[in-house]
Design a protein around this nucleic acid. Structure first.
Length: 272
DNA sequence: AAAGTAGTCAACCGCACAGGC
DNA sequence: CGCCTGTGCGGTTGACTACTT
């Protein structure tokens, strides 16, 4: 069937953005807010495709972007998150305040890949290039990552078994829902998933939407989850090597900030 | 100084999904 | 239920810059 083009390409500019275009986009979004990207270019007086506007805003013009070099801590976090999530750049970016998926993707491809290769680590499997130990560990059928999800508004949780290693290597954010559908027996509940992982750098600058009234409307009922209350689980942050309170905001602040996803694993696995 | 090469990163492309109709 | 639209994502490209010869 084929999709219709996202815009009338014959009348749109392409390539690098000019300062004038940037200014138009910024001032339009400042006064009207984000959203409705398809109609935005016309409304803002831009000869650009809506997708192009969105990309420009998200990757370059957004005021909360942190420009500049990545820190060692960010490096570490990206590597660890990539080991867990694969090429899910948007999810990884969600854990790095002020960084965009495109930026992280570029950084991965230009810096981290090379860094890992020079250390003899396969950037895809995160295993030793000659041994592949980590990849083997990932494929271990005994391995069970317990992901406890705290959903923003519904104030409910669910636990996902990720015995299937494809969950870690192939799933998109939205595939998780498919995954849950395919493995209902692994689930406690059949609900939507908020993939807002509660992993972040020590600075832990909160995302703006965390403070939205709707998210805070009912914080108390979400604070108790099976994983939290269970002594048989540890926080992924801790598992990844961060000391409690160092990078793991959720360990310390979880009860205060329930709108997080905690990736947990059984204690016996962690103790192995 | 010029040419060639490598590295970086903004931007584009195509695909998939959600939701409305 | 199927089609269509809007949006977001990951992969890729290509322009620009830095470095080397």
């Amino acid at each position: 069937m084929g999709r219709s083009p996202c815009c009338e390409k014959a009348h749109t500019n392409k390539g690098a953005w000019t300062k004038e275009e940037d200014q138009k986009l910024i001032s339009y979004i400042k006064s009207h807010g984000e959203g409705c990207w398809r109609s935005l270019p016309k409304a803002a007086g831009l000869l650009r495709c809506g997708k192009s506007c969105r990309l420009r805003w998200i990757n370059y013009l957004r005021p909360d972007l942190k420009r500049g070099n990545f820190t060692e801590e960010e490096d570490e976090l990206i590597i660890k998150l990539h080991g867990l999530l694969g090429n899910k750049w948007s999810l990884i970016a969600g854990r790095l305040p002020g960084r965009t998926d495109n930026e992280i993707k570029n950084y991965w491809n230009t810096h981290i890949k090379r860094k890992l290769l020079s250390q003899g680590i396969d950037p895809q499997t995160h295993g030793q290039i000659n041994g592949g130990a980590a990849a083997a560990a990932l494929a271990d059928p005994q391995r069970q990552e317990m992901i406890t999800v705290v959903q923003d508004d519904m104030a409910v949780t669910k636990t996902i078994s990720t015995t299937d290693s494809s969950y870690l290597t192939n799933s998109r954010h939205d595939d998780v829902d498919n995954h849950t559908g395919d493995h209902d027996h692994d689930l406690d509940l059949d609900l939507d998933i908020n993939l807002d992982l509660s992993i972040s750098l020590p600075c832990c600058s909160p995302k703006p939407n965390y403070s939205q009234p709707s998210s805070q409307a009912n914080p108390t009922s979400t604070t108790t989850t099976a994983a939290i209350s269970s002594p048989q689980a540890i926080c992924l942050c801790c598992h990844l090597g961060f000391q409690s309170g160092e990078a793991c905001c959720s360990c310390q602040n979880y009860s205060k900030s329930p709108h997080v996803l905690r990736v947990m694993r059984p204690l016996e696995e962690a103790q192995r």
